[in-house]
Design a protein around this nucleic acid. Structure first.
Lengths: 211, 211
DNA sequence: TGTCCGATCTGGACAGTGCTTAGATATAAA
DNA sequence: TTTATATCTAAGCACTGTCCAGATCGGACA
């Protein structure tokens, strides 16, 4: 998760403090959770004064945006990793969905920051839907490839949105206590995720194809 | 939304300050959003000192739980209101889903508090899955009624969870800017919601019935 | 080489927060 | 009426996000 070494180049006093602050924030997030993520704690973790971050970010929200950006890229990487793992579209989309939920389980605090900032702006990050390597585009492209050239854009878009919403809902609630009995019934977390995702039937482009 | 009159009985100094605080919190939430909801602001709104709430709630989290509880009940009412609006299961479940998302759109701040506290506790409120009049039970019962007696509990539960996750995902993202083009394509917000919900196909008990 | 300018960082301050403690007050019970 | 208990206030603590004046350092220019 790019908590990478800080001292690659140090063009300024501290040496790329901006990146160091984002890294520090992610470190705190993974170690102590979202409630411990104050601007002052981040500055402390990075070894600078509480006012230093204001030379690189307009306010706390802008720092969180930068943190979220790292998260979205990592999520995209995780989803891209299962690409080509199976030729069957339905099971491929299920695996992409599983990768999505897995990310949210492995980085719950980061995932929370990602959607907190998204809700504040009423929008997923700009780049995700346009840039070809974004997580959102990955899902859309998978649907498009499977659907073929005759399917209207609106159907592709609908399938993408539906899949994204379903995956997000599952991601936020997969840890809820209510679901434990069902997890056992499906042989653990992985089986449960696959069951829900394939039950939803959202990962079938056929539906979009036939309309 | 139960911002009801305060002075029904006043057995204590202030007169049911507990309820007054919850009402005040909801008022602030609807008026200024979640970021304005501090314990001190709630006390101010209710006309008491900043320390007064601590005689009725252990801490801020417990106040938020009480606020969220009001929200869950209101959500349940909204979903129950469409009950019996159509004999067809698929369209009924779609309407229940629409009612769910509509609630989140009309009370975004309250909806946010509901899930913030749920995530903190890694659980939906206790009563919802057991009490017969809870929103969660409403969905499960609808599935059960439609499926008939031969369908195993685990399938009913799976369908319920899948539908709930999908509705929540859509609720959190239905306001995102990315979806605007699609909304126009489906003739406004209502059409968009129905399209996504029925595309997901999650509201069909048949799948559960056949397994 | 020396000087200066602007980017970068610090120390200190302000208002606001959640929460605690000690004391005041009013209600219900004796 | 006295007493006990629930309720509320006042004051204070440690913390937060944010701003400001001043210190400091790097690179450009002379």
């Amino acid at each position: 998760m790019s908590t990478a070494a800080v001292a690659d180049t140090r063009p300024y006093h501290h040496g790329d403090l901006r990146r160091a602050l984002v890294d520090a924030a992610i470190r705190i997030l993974e170690r102590e959770g979202p409630s411990a993520l104050s601007l002052r704690a981040v500055a402390r973790e990075a070894g600078v004064s509480p006012a230093a971050p204001y030379h690189h970010f307009k306010d706390k929200g802008e720092l969180l945006e930068a943190v979220a950006h790292v998260g979205w890229e990592a999520l995209g990487d995780g989803m891209a990793a299962v690409q080509g793992s199976t030729p069957d579209l339905t099971s491929l989309m299920t695996e992409i969905g599983v990768a999505y939920v897995r990310f949210s389980q492995e980085h719950p605090a980061l995932y929370r920051v990602m959607y907190d900032t998204a809700r504040d702006k009423d929008s997923l990050p700009e780049g995700m839907q346009d840039k070809e390597d974004g997580a959102y585009c990955l899902v859309r492209n998978t649907f498009r490839d499977a659907a073929g050239p005759g399917v209207p854009d609106v159907d592709i878009e609908l399938a993408t949105i539906a899949a994204w919403c379903a995956a997000h809902g599952l991601a936020e609630m997969s840890g809820f206590a209510q679901f434990n009995p069902l997890k056992e019934a499906f042989g653990g977390d992985a089986g449960f995720l696959r069951a829900v995702l394939s039950h939803l039937g959202m990962f079938q482009a056929k539906q979009a194809k036939q309309d």
